[in-house]
Design a binder for these strands. Structure first.
Ligand SMILES: [Zn+2]
Ligand SMILES: [Zn+2]
Ligand SMILES: [Zn+2]
Ligand SMILES: [Zn+2]
Lengths: 142, 142
DNA sequence: CGATCGGATGTTATATCATAACATCTATCT
DNA sequence: AGATAGATGTTATGATATAACATCCGATCG
């Protein structure tokens, strides 16, 4: 599954591994925290590695969280869709080809040429929606 | 379904007017800059006004720009779609009912209960796409 | 009237996210 | 060796956002 076109540097590999292991979005400073003591001491290194990984399509940036997550299906795809549970923090990357086509159609209909399409849904995951019967649980948040 | 609108405070009105007049997204600090000398001297006031306006459905936050824009059709709508030109900075709020329904269907199909749906397209507007013939012009950005 | 309550604001300080600018190091190609 | 490209280190700063607490004011109610 790991289709890597360019070889990754040490730090880039380390960042990707950390994101994959986390299985949830991490902020650049979360990553920096985990990399201190491994020779990574400042934000630019982390941001540079993330930039590369995003370029390579291995990592997505989630705008509404200011955080990064390993791509669940690492192909280059210029559209990413995320469902973000505001209760437990679960983030799921969704794929829906028809949606992508419809979005592209909608944008081009207005003459817009989209190079990147971001869809982020906020709400409650199935588990949390089931649990939620009027009362609130321990809000996770980011 | 009675859409009860709360009266807006002085600052809230001022912020909404500034956003409407700008016709483009402004950051909270852009707004603060314009409000200094009118008794608004610190970020919290601006953020609080924006929070209220977003709650009322009069303003949208554009996540990928960290900026705010007046809603083009101020109804409460939990889905907002924006086409953002990376060249000239033009931001257009799009409406597409079928897309909204398809997104809702997709999310609920996976058991997710969406309360808010964000769609942000990055690329080039019709005018800039026409001008762009391989060469880059004066990248505007925000 | 006077109590009190909610909404808005002021104020200070700080947290969080991101980049500029410049120096260094190494691998690779010529 | 010289040149190039990519990655990293380092220092400093910019940009975005919130915490915590105090004050003010209009509406409501006993
Ligand atoms: Zn992906
Ligand atoms: Zn959940
Ligand atoms: Zn709107
Ligand atoms: Zn444009």
């Amino acid at each position: 599954m790991t289709v890597r076109r360019q070889p990754l540097s040490q730090t880039q590999t380390r960042v990707l591994d950390l994101l994959s292991a986390a299985g949830r979005p991490l902020s650049a400073y979360d990553l920096l925290g985990k990399l201190r003591g491994e020779g990574v001491n400042a934000p630019p290194t982390v941001y540079r590695a993330l930039e590369k990984l995003v370029r390579e399509g291995l990592v997505h940036r989630i705008e509404s969280l200011n955080a990064f997550v390993a791509c669940s299906t690492p192909h280059h795809h210029d559209m990413a869709t995320f469902a973000i549970c505001d209760q437990c923090g679960l983030v799921t990357e969704l794929t829906d080809r028809p949606l992508q086509e419809q979005l592209a159609a909608m944008s081009s209909r207005s003459g817009f040429h989209a190079t990147r399409m971001m869809v982020e849904l906020r709400g409650h995951c199935a588990a949390c929606a089931a649990k939620a019967h009027g009362h609130g649980a321990s809000d996770h948040a980011h």
